[in-house]
Design a protein around this nucleic acid. Structure first.
Length: 493
RNA sequence: GAGGACGUAGGCAAAUCGGCUAAGCCGCCAGCCCUUCAAGUUGGAGAUUGCGGGUUCGAUUCCCGUCGUCCUCGCCA
């Protein structure tokens, strides 16, 4: 049978980093098994679901490259089927009407009630309506009395399943209450909806977050009542914040959103690679893997059972997100085939009005050489438009610290650099080797350290204290621009 | 409160069926390179495998206990 998996997010916010990884693992599993990857939007909570959120999730998935193999299923479209399923179970005596008036309780009260119930060791089967006769139940329903439909969990026995990651799981019926399938307003509830949809979509493997591990028993009960075979289940460890706390939008903010990484200049391939290594190991020493390699190597056996910590420090700009994620991105930027990087650089430059059509035409060679030169020390795509700005525009900022340290600390450079420019005028072949010869001769002649000269030139030509070898920068910028900037007095004021 | 899951350096993690000095990556420190910063390269620090006990010639691995963290328990998803 063909493997069919689904990623089923609730559209109550943007695509969470943990959800993104769940999507990734589902995708990898499907591809590895030659199966289908499906997408279902679980929008049954009308109060919290938004279209904007759905769009944001779809955007995030598209960015990561996970296109569903079949049409997207919107759970709310199936509400009638969910209701029909509940009614069918009622008809068959596997569920019953609960006429207990609905209590309007807040989150806190609900939690308190749970604790109280456990403390009193209350029997989960003590609902008085569980054994109400069919006649009475039908009569009250016909008279218009509102009711919820609850699953009639058997008195004794237990559910069990073999989790693909956590192994054998068992739970006694006595620990599971008669869960509500249908609200008194006719609205189907989560567990019913999920099971019905998974059956209808013919899902063979449910791969989802570990937070659903214990709820799986309830869903198995529904499968059994419905007379359907449960799929295989595999639960994934959670991704936690530093300190082992839950990673939440409310507390940790943008750091948990996929769009943050896209907007910060991450390459989808790099982030995907990083995400794959969070909670999963190929059990080899290779960590940089293409999507194909991830697919090839992926298996449930490689999934770790303990929760992973996503490391970041909101107060440290250099460590605003996980070190390894940043490193991975830099690694991709400097080692991926140049041709694959170029389109991303183009987009970044375009977004910052630094792009010129010539870069793909008459200046193609120059552009590629330049990107190749500067990508070596960049961490994100953003760097091309910020640190790399001086290569693509005459309008760039000077870093004050660079100016102070590399120029103003050596006042003689104010005359030396323009003089060096004059020497450069004489060079016909404006290349690295020629430049080196001339510049070294000049430094010796003036009794100035070559390094001081180069660092000063770097501050003047790029506005920065750091960057590639200056000889390469001169060559890249070309004779005209190099001389012009060496003679410029702007930075001195 | 009950049930469940999980504890290997700061983070990600490996370790066949119980077996060599507990891999590798990120981060950190240092040397080399050097014109700065990266990269590269070489080396280093960092682990009583949460803790305690048991079984065993031998335990990260099996058993028990304990502590810690997380998850779930709703007419939320």
């Amino acid at each position: 049978m063909t493997i069919r998996v689904r990623f089923a997010p609730s559209p109550t916010g943007y695509l969470h980093i943990g959800s993104a990884r769940t999507a990734l693992f589902n995708y990898l599993y499907a591809r590895n098994k030659g199966g289908k990857f499906l997408l279902r939007i679980e929008d049954t909570d009308l109060a919290r679901s938004t279209e904007e959120s759905t769009r944001s999730i779809l955007d995030g998935l598209a960015w990561l490259g996970f296109a569903p193999d079949e049409e997207i299923v919107y759970q709310s479209d199936n509400a009638d089927k969910h209701r029909a399923a509940a009614l069918k179970l009622l008809e068959e005596g596997k569920a019953y009407r609960d006429f207990t008036p609905k209590e309007d309780r807040g989150d806190k009260d609900v939690k308190a009630a749970i604790v109280e119930r456990a403390r009193e060791q209350k029997n989960m089967r003590d609902n008085p309506f569980r054994d109400t006769s069919k006649e009475e139940s039908d009569g009250r329903a016909e008279s218009g009395e509102p009711f919820a439909i609850r699953l009639k969990v058997p008195e004794t026995g237990k559910t069990s399943f073999e989790d693909g990651v956590y192994g054998r799981q068992e739970r006694d019926y006595s620990e599971i209450e008669d869960l509500v399938l249908l609200r008194s307003d006719g609205h189907p509830l989560y567990n019913l909806a999920v099971v019905c949809d998974d059956i209808e979509m013919e899902i063979t493997d449910v791969i989802r977050g570990q937070d659903h591990l214990t709820n799986t028993h309830k869903q198995i009960l529904i499968y059994e009542a419905l007379g359907a075979n449960p799929p295989r289940f595999a639960h994934l460890p959670l991704i936690l914040a530093p300190g082992g706390k839950k990673l939440s939008k409310r507390i940790h903010g943008e750091i948990v959103s996929m769009t943050t990484y896209r907007d910060a200049g991450f390459l989808a391939a790099a982030f995907r690679n990083f995400l794959a290594l969070l909670g999963w190991s190929p059990k080899t020493e290779q960590e940089i893997m293409t999507l194909d390699e991830l697919v090839q190597n992926f298996s449930l056996e490689g999934i770790h059972r303990n929760n992973a910590i996503f490391n970041f420090d909101a107060n440290n700009p250099k460590r605003w997100t996980d070190d390894k994620a940043i490193w991975m991105n830099a690694e991709y930027i400097r080692t991926m085939p140049l041709a694959e990087l170029l389109p991303f650089v183009k987009e970044e430059l375009k977004n910052n009005k630094l792009w010129r059509e010539e870069y793909e035409d008459s200046e193609k060679e120059w552009f590629e050489k330049t990107v190749d030169l500067i990508r070596e020390r960049f961490f994100t795509l953003k760097d091309f438009s910020t640190q790399g700005r001086a290569y693509f525009s005459e309008d760039f900022d000077f870093d004050q610290a660079a100016i102070d340290k590399n120029l103003k600390k050596h006042p003689d450079l104010q005359t030396l650099l323009p003089e060096l420019a004059d020497r450069f005028e004489t060079i016909e072949n404006f290349t690295h080797d020629e430049l080196e010869k001339v510049a070294k001769e000049f430094a010796e002649e003036k009794g100035t350290k070559f390094g001081v000269l180069m660092n000063g030139a770097r501050a003047l030509l790029t506005g920065l204290a750091v960057g590639p070898s200056m000889l390469a920068v001169f060559e890249t910028l070309g004779k005209e621009r190099s001389i012009l900037r060496l003679k410029s007095q702007i930075a001195w004021n």
